[in-house]
Design a protein around this nucleic acid. Structure first.
Lengths: 140, 140
DNA sequence: TAGATTGTATACTATCTTTGTAGGAAAAAA
DNA sequence: TTTTTTCCTACAAAGATAGTATACAATCTA
């Protein structure tokens, strides 16, 4: 029940982009240096965010990535579900229609649903803008 | 962010024991057959519960395991934390004192704490007795 | 006492996931 | 044309997951 580095780095990456200012183009190299993370690994992660349209890329020298929307429009949940996959505690909740054969008589299903709801409620209530604000308040 | 089979089976195992009646001695073989799970694998899982004192074992013919307490005294959280390890979404929350070097400036720590609290609140609010009740209501 | 039943302990293994590394191609700017 | 940067894919070490397998110890019953 851990969030993997992929998801955690993705959040830090988005937060880093947001902190550099609206629409500013930032190279992965810079982010990696600032966050102390592997450049090549971040490339893979940001490419997921790019394909989903959460960031846009600019190739070539002076290129990089920038946010396509306002930081307040990205919830942590969006980013985690994209990079980690679903945040459901059990696989059978991932499908639209529960495929588990025990599903009709499963005594624990409701429990997992409750847990899933609680998890998603938290991550969907926090945006990148919220995290950015916290960061800026800290500096003072 | 999935609960592994170890934790899920442990909950089903405890629920099965509870369903067989107070203090009744039940063999792993029976539970495995009833739940459709591997006998040997369940043995490993129940041995964790045994070492923690959640169940007691009786060796030899007619032996098995039985619950040491009333089903209402086992929360799902207790069982999952024992078999899965901590339910914290990030490792740095597992230690009494946060060992992470970024911990003082980490902008996401509070988010993970909130998530951790939400997860633990759910699993600690549900007991084996609650699940048992649900099971019995279903039969009607 | 012998044999069946049941738990105890430990080793082994196949598969998958995680967490990256590595190398090079393509695009764009200087 | 050189440099910078993204883009793409392959590879791999380490660890976790989900069991199997084997042998042994304790207890009950005939």
């Amino acid at each position: 029940m851990k969030i993997s580095t992929r998801g955690r780095y993705a959040v830090r990456l988005m937060l880093d982009l947001a902190a550099q200012g609206e629409g500013k183009c930032v190279a992965v190299k810079e982010i990696a240096a600032r966050q102390g993370l592997s450049e090549k690994y971040l490339e893979q992660i940001i490419s997921i965010l790019n394909k989903a349209g959460y960031v846009k890329s600019v190739r070539g020298a002076q290129g990089g990535y920038y946010l396509t929307k306002d930081p307040s429009e990205y919830t942590v949940g969006m980013i985690l579900r994209l990079t980690e996959g679903s945040l459901n505690p059990v696989a059978c909740l991932d499908d639209e229609v529960n495929q588990c054969e025990r599903c009709d008589t499963c005594e624990t299903l409701e429990l997992w649903k409750k847990l899933s709801d609680a998890i998603n409620a938290v991550v969907d209530s926090v945006t990148i803008a919220d995290l950015k604000e916290r960061k800026e308040n800290e500096k003072k």
